[in-house]
Design a binder for these strands. Structure first.
Length: 645
DNA sequence: TCGTTGTGTCATCAA
DNA sequence: ATTTGATGACACAAC
């Protein structure tokens, strides 16, 4: 079965390659969610804190679940990645997103005419990837999205489970009608409750002048991060299970261009635009177009494949935040390919988490937030990002951790997704690929909100912006501050705990010297730094301890199996030896019975025995002791003789 | 109410 | 001498 799955998966990828050669654009992004679990690549960061056990990063995730570092299956694991790398090199950047759906659709001639010989979407996305700040990218995407939408039928855009999804001209007309129909708004409204929540929260987020301006990662990094066909075993198992569906759905999928990427980008642009409060006004038709596309991709929440469309919503909400934080160029920021991919990683769980977190956080700030300063577990209060205010936060966290399905929850540190998703809105900033090595290991919930200032921490002391003096620091963020954060704020220390912990020691010393802190402030700074580092050390230590326990358990099982095997061998050997001894005694009796002594009498087997010499000669030897004496008696006599000698 | 688990923190040691 | 990582021990919260 494993072999069959392997061949199927590799064959699928090879088919993808071949189709790309003949001009058929293959979108692996959009049509795997129904068949495959969401893939995440754990090298996003924090889990890599356990640098001593690098493969645990994989083992604790979907990627490497069940893959032991010494396991030969890793060869297949990397071989699969290599195959997908080959697909990537074909130049279709559609593969860079989460591999949760797959779609084969023909590139129309108009696409080629408009966007060149390469795949249209690929061209657009290439532009996004290679020049995230390019403003022309926006228009390209819009055009591309329009073209895509023109070929897509919203009613048929139900994912690969739809059969007979070929788009007739009449259907195209209907689609056009729907584009210009205000009902698109209602379609969106009916698309999904989650979407509605996201919309509500997205609009609400406007009121939060979050200074959350997450440092966007470079797209190049994300390209290498996000495209990982890692859990091929799981994928294969699912694919094999859904093979009949695939056979019937591919045909329908060919004529549909339901690109998750395009839909997400465009819809995100819509939200980002709406969040900008009209700073970049757009025509209603454009917005409707956007809505329609969103609807066409994620119009049904009843189909698992439609998680694709929903996946766009977290991105949109984040765009809201970024837009509100910057107030300009929101669309460009939102269209950042890396952001898109990051949100893609979150999937539906991320959406739910964010929605819940938004709802909870918008419900008001807990007045007791500052009362736990002396509590040892004050950090844990913030770690749930909801504290006593949000009893559902633990549920959110658990549901988030279920995203990685397996061992994520075993240790509590294995999943970046868990920690990220449990942190709410501002935590999206923590999933950017950190540029500082220490940021990789920072997956503590306590300083989640302070991750916003990571970049400032890196450039310190040249770029100290006194983050706490910012009036935009909302109550939402205040609630998420850790105990040390609150202490630092109370002591007017212009650094976040994360900054304090992550800055190099030279920089830390320089800060201590150059800012004229009082002794209490210096003590607090040192305590915060020590506690933060020790916290990470404790997490690593516990992780290692669990790993050691797991390793020892495996060792015990292995040794028990070896012991059982040796016992069986021993029993078998004893049995064989007994049989051989019996044969020897029988042969001895036969030989002695055929021999005669001087008087012509047969030799008594009890008085004589056969002795095999070193030269191979067999001689008859008389047993010295009479047969009456027992063997035990013989032994005692021999011992006595030996003693006498 | 009690046990378990996860987490933060402190103390201590070693590099 | 100081910093930092590792780890045992403890306390606390959540379940």
């Amino acid at each position: 079965m494993q072999i069959g799955k392997k061949y199927f998966t590799e064959g699928l990828i090879q088919l993808t390659i071949l189709l790309s050669f003949i001009g058929v654009r293959v979108d692996v992004d959009s049509y795997l969610s129904g068949y495959y679990p969401p893939l995440t690549e754990i090298n996003l960061g924090p889990s890599s804190a356990y640098t001593q056990t690098p493969f645990h990063i994989l083992r604790d995730t979907l990627d490497g679940y069940g893959v032991h570092p010494k396991c030969p299956e890793l060869d297949y694991f990397f071989a699969s990645r290599r195959l997908l790398e080959e697909v990537r090199t074909l130049g279709s950047p559609r593969f860079h997103t989460q591999l949760n759906a797959w779609l084969v659709h023909q590139v129309s001639a108009t696409d080629k005419a408009e966007h060149g010989p390469s795949t249209s979407g690929g061209t657009d996305t290439d532009g996004v990837l290679e020049s995230p700040g390019d403003e022309a990218r926006d228009s390209n995407l819009s055009e591309s999205g329009q073209e895509v939408r023109r070929r897509a039928n919203p009613e048929l855009g139900q994912g690969p489970c739809q059969s007979g999804a070929s788009v007739t001209p009449q259907e195209e007309d209907e689609a056009k009608v729907k584009e210009e129909d205000p009902v698109s708004l209602t379609q969106l409204a009916h698309s999904s409750s989650l979407e509605q929540e996201s919309l509500l929260e997205g609009s609400t987020a406007l009121s939060n002048p979050g200074r959350c301006h997450p440092p966007y990662p470079t797209p190049d990094i994300d390209w290498s991060n996000f495209l990982s066909l890692t859990d091929l075993d799981d994928l294969d198992s699912l694919v094999s299970g859904r093979l009949p569906d695939l056979n019937t759905d591919i045909a329908g999928a060919i004529s549909q261009d339901v690109s998750l990427h395009d839909a997400m980008v465009t819809s995100a642009g819509m939200y980002g635009e709406s969040s900008s409060g009209g700073t970049e006004p757009r025509t209603s038709s454009q917005q409707q177009r956007v809505l329609l596309r969103l609807d066409s991709t994620g119009s049904s929440d009843t189909s698992p494949e439609m998680a694709l469309g929903l996946a766009a919503l977290p991105f949109a909400s984040v765009c809201n935040m970024t837009a509100s934080g910057t107030g300009q160029g929101a669309l460009d920021d939102c269209l950042d390919e890396a952001v898109f991919d990051q949100i893609n990683q979150l999937g539906l769980e991320g959406l739910e988490t964010m929605n819940n977190q938004l709802l909870v956080s918008l419900g008001g700030i807990e007045p007791h937030a500052l009362e736990d300063l002396d509590s040892d577990s004050g950090l844990s209060l913030e770690s749930s990002s909801g504290g006593p205010v949000s009893p559902g936060s633990s549920e959110i966290s658990s549901s988030s951790s279920s995203y990685c399905e397996d061992e994520c929850g075993a240790t509590g540190y294995s999943s970046e997704v868990e920690s990220v998703l449990s942190k709410g809105i501002t935590d999206y900033s923590t999933i950017w690929p950190p540029s500082h090595p220490n940021e990789n290991v920072w997956h503590d919930h306590s300083y989640a909100s302070t991750a916003l200032f990571n970049k400032a921490a890196i450039t310190l002391p040249h770029k100290i912006e006194e983050p706490f003096s910012d009036d935009a620091c909302s109550e939402l963020e205040e609630r998420e501050l850790s105990r040390d954060e609150l202490r630092a704020r109370a002591m007017c220390i212009p650094f976040s705990a994360l900054q304090i912990v992550n800055m190099p020691v030279e920089e830390f010393m320089e800060v201590l010297d150059s800012y004229g802190f009082s002794s209490e402030q210096v003590t607090l700074l040192r305590d915060i730094r020590r506690r933060g580092k020790n916290k990470l050390a404790a997490q690593n230590c516990r992780k290692r301890k669990l790993d050691a326990i797991t390793g020892l358990q495996e060792e015990v099982e292995r040794l028990q199996a070896q012991r059982d095997r040796l016992l069986r061998d021993k029993q078998l050997t004893a049995k064989t030896m007994g049989a051989v001894g019996h044969q020897i005694r029988q042969l001895t009796r036969d030989v002695l019975a055929r021999l005669r002594d001087r008087s012509g009498q047969p030799l008594n087997p009890e008085r004589y025995t056969l002795q095999c010499g070193a030269n191979g000669r067999v001689v008859v030897q008389r047993i010295r002791q009479p047969a009456v004496s027992t063997s035990a008696g013989n032994k005692t006599d021999k011992r006595k003789k030996d003693k006498k000698q």
